[in-house]
């Protein structure tokens, strides 16, 4: 059954492209008496045949929802009655929303900084050693692991037994070995939020490392040679010659991770479900959508997430347009 659905889904897609182009070629055959005119006419239509499915999907799945969400955010819990800015007013006064906003802000400060920092160090160090490629693969590996899988991995590390039982979570085992008391890490405010951030930093560092490593290798050799001749130490070369030359790439890595952070959801849902002061916007939105069953409030939260991404979006479009010229 499953295989059949797969085949139908994929085949349907292939079928569209072949058939639509064959039909177009048979209406305007590129040979015979009117070949020239036909090719021109087909050329006017064909781009849209190529683009049609993409435009439809993008419109339905990404553009249309923006407008519906805005509309829903001004309506009540089931989208029936117009309530003005009530949902937004509720948001401003809701302690959980404030907590989420604050947490998201902390995530935005810590995770991109942490990932970029570790990524930069890993890139700089692994480029200098012989087994660097192996080391890179190991640090990059968490990228392949799902957020939920990573949550399981890290929840095991933060595990708490207590009651004099042997601690099987690594963090508590280390604490006990150093003579401390085991802690219930995930329910302690505000440490718990940082422990969740560690998971995302762990995942994203590999990404930062790969991009920054490529950028470091792209630095012109002469600048480094000149610095060495002037007697700069390796640390000085790194901080004063290399890093300033890759600021652009660092900014790109930073913004890319920022976007990921704004949408972070799985880790919080799987590890604490927003309890103990760890709520974030994306999970709060999910909560109001499924448990609260309130499309108005959920949409209002979604709009807030969208607004936080908008500056990055505008910046991206500007850069892309500059490149096109």
């Amino acid at each position: 059954m499953a295989t059949a659905t797969i085949v139908i889904g994929v085949a349907g897609c292939v079928f569209y492209f072949f058939m639509s182009n064959i039909v177009l070629d048979s209406i305007f055959p590129p040979r015979g008496a009117n070949a020239g005119r036909n090719i021109l006419r087909a050329g006017l239509i064909r781009p849209w045949l190529f683009l049609m499915p993409a435009i439809i999907l993008l419109t339905v799945y990404l553009v249309y929802p923006v407008f519906v969400s805005v509309w829903l955010s001004f309506h009540d819990s089931n989208g029936q009655n117009f309530v003005g800015a009530d949902n937004y007013l509720w948001l401003v006064n809701d302690p959980k929303f404030r907590e989420s906003l604050w947490n998201n802000f902390m995530w935005l400060l810590v995770v991109p900084a942490g990932s970029t920092f570790f990524g930069l160090i890993a890139a700089a160090l692994t480029d200098r050693i012989r087994w660097g490629n192996f080391a890179k693969a190991m640090i990059f590996m968490p990228m392949a692991i799902s957020f939920v899988g990573a949550s399981v991995i890290w929840k095991f590390i933060y595990d708490y037994r207590g009651d004099g039982q042997a601690e099987v979570g690594m963090l508590n085992a280390i604490v006990v070995a150093l003579g401390g008391e085991p802690q219930t890490w995930l329910s302690q405010i505000p440490t718990n939020s940082f422990l969740l951030m560690v998971v995302l930093i762990w995942i994203q560092t590999g990404f930062a490392m790969v991009i920054l490593s490529a950028a470091l290798r792209g630095i012109p050799e002469e600048t480094i040679e000149a610095a060495i001749l002037d007697g700069a130490s390796p640390l000085q070369i790194f901080t004063k010659i290399k890093v300033p030359q890759i600021w652009g790439t660092i900014a790109v890595v930073w913004t890319t991770i920022t976007i990921t952070v704004l949408k972070v959801f799985d880790i919080v849902l799987a590890m604490t479900n927003g309890q103990w002061g760890t709520q974030v916007l994306a999970n709060l939105m999910f909560d109001w959508m499924f448990r609260g069953n309130d499309t108005g409030r959920a949409s209002a939260i979604a709009i807030v997430i969208m607004l936080t991404v908008t500056p990055i979006m505008i910046w991206n479009i500007r850069n892309a347009r500059k490149e096109m010229r």
Binding site: P65, L72, F286
Partner: peptide, 23 residues
């Protein structure tokens, strides 16, 4: 064409959360 390309770049960062309820 240029407008479409700019549109695609803009859509790169649209958060999924926004699409869930309408879709």
């Amino acid at each position: 064409r240029a407008l479409l390309i700019a549109g695609v770049v803009g859509l790169l960062v649209v958060p999924l959360q926004l699409s869930l309820i309408p879709l």
